[in-house]
C-alpha cells in the first residue's frame, strides 16, 4: 500500500518508496525535494523563509531554508540514503501579488529560492531541476518510486521534473 504523506507549511517529511510526498499550495514558499535513486528514499521540505539567523525567533527549524535542509538530510540518511547520491529538485518561490513598488517583503519568494540554491551548494548537493519564480501557486509531489517531482498549477499546466 502506498501512502501519500502530506507536508504542511514550514514542515518537512521523509519517506521511502512506495510512499509519496506531497505539499499543497506553495506560493512564495519553496518546496525542496531530495532523492536517492538507489534506496528510493526521499524528503520534501516546505520552507517559508530564507535564513534563520535574520529571524527574531527560530522556534521551528523546518521553517527556514538553512536549518530545514540539514535536518531533512540527516533523517534521510537514517532511512538508508547515501548523501553522495542525493540530488535536489526545487519549485515555488513565486511572487503572488504585484505592487508597483515591490518591497523586500514582496520579493521573499525570490530570496527563498536564492537561499535554497545557496544552501544546497554549501551542502554539496547537486540541484538537477529548478522551477521557481512566476506569480502563481504550485502543488508539488515527489514520487519516491521514480524520483519524479510533479508540479501542478491552476492554469500554467502540470509538469514533471
Amino acid at each position: 500500500m502506498s501512502e501519500l504523506i502530506k507536508v504542511g507549511m514550514a514542515d518537512y517529511k521523509v519517506g521511502i518508496s512506495p510512499n509519496n510526498l506531497i505539499s499543497y499550495g506553495l506560493g512564495s514558499c519553496v518546496g525542496i525535494a531530495l532523492y536517492d535513486n538507489i534506496t528510493k528514499v526521499g524528503g520534501l521540505a516546505h520552507i517559508m523563509l530564507p535564513d534563520s539567523t535574520q529571524a527574531r525567533s527560530a522556534e521551528n527549524p523546518a521553517k527556514f531554508a538553512d536549518t530545514a535542509l540539514p535536518l531533512m538530510l540527516s533523517d534521510m540518511i537514517k532511512l538508508g540514503a547515501l548523501k553522495q547520491r542525493i540530488t535536489a529538485k526545487i519549485a515555488g518561490g513565486a511572487q503572488m501579488f504585484t505592487f508597483a513598488n515591490a518591497t523586500d517583503i514582496m520579493r521573499v519568494g525570490e530570496r527563498n529560492a536564492e537561499a535554497v540554491r545557496a544552501m544546497l551548494k554549501k551542502m554539496d548537493i547537486r540541484m538537477i531541476a529548478d522551477d521557481t519564480g512566476g506569480n502563481y501557486g504550485r502543488t508539488v509531489e515527489l514520487k519516491l518510486e521514480t524520483g519524479i517531482y510533479r508540479v501542478k498549477t491552476i492554469d500554467k499546466g502540470e509538469k514533471e521534473l
Binding site: L26, M48, A94, V108
Partner: peptide, 18 residues
C-alpha cells in the same frame, strides 16, 4: 490561485516573528 499560495504572502511576514 490556491489558498495556501495566496495566504503564504501574509504568513511569511508573520513567520519572521514566530
Amino acid at each position: 490561485d490556491m489558498a495556501g499560495a495566496i495566504l503564504s504572502v501574509i504568513l511569511i511576514q508573520l513567520g519572521q516573528m514566530g
